[in-house]
């Protein structure tokens, strides 16, 4: 299981790095919102992997909060972006 955990960690880390580069490069705020959503999903996956590796469910409620937070975040960014455009 340790090999699996290491592999998954490396894969997720690379994915997170790529996503982060998109957040930095943009170009628009919506691109960043999309990338942030993906980054949050990668974090959720990482926490779930940790829980699976150590067989410890303490962190699971955090996952529920993160899953909802990502949604609320991108929807509010989308609203904010539209409102500013229409002014």
């Amino acid at each position: 299981m340790t090999t699996v955990a290491v592999t998954v960690t490396v894969l997720l880390a690379v994915a997170g790095g790529l996503t982060l580069s998109r957040i930095i490069r943009g170009p628009s705020i919506l691109d960043r919102a999309v990338a942030t959503d993906v980054l949050l999903a990668i974090i959720v996956a990482a926490i779930a992997t940790e829980a699976a590796y150590s067989r410890d469910a303490t962190a699971l409620p955090v996952l529920v909060v993160l899953a909802v937070l990502g949604f609320v975040g991108s929807v509010s960014i989308a609203r904010f972006a539209t409102r500013r455009k229409s002014e």
């Binding site: 894969l11 690379v14 994915a15 790529l18 996503t19 998109r22 993906v38 990668i42």
Partner: peptide, 8 residues
């Protein structure tokens, strides 16, 4: 997830 990152 990695594929999603590459696609982004």
């Amino acid at each position: 997830s990695l594929a999603a990152g590459v696609a982004l």
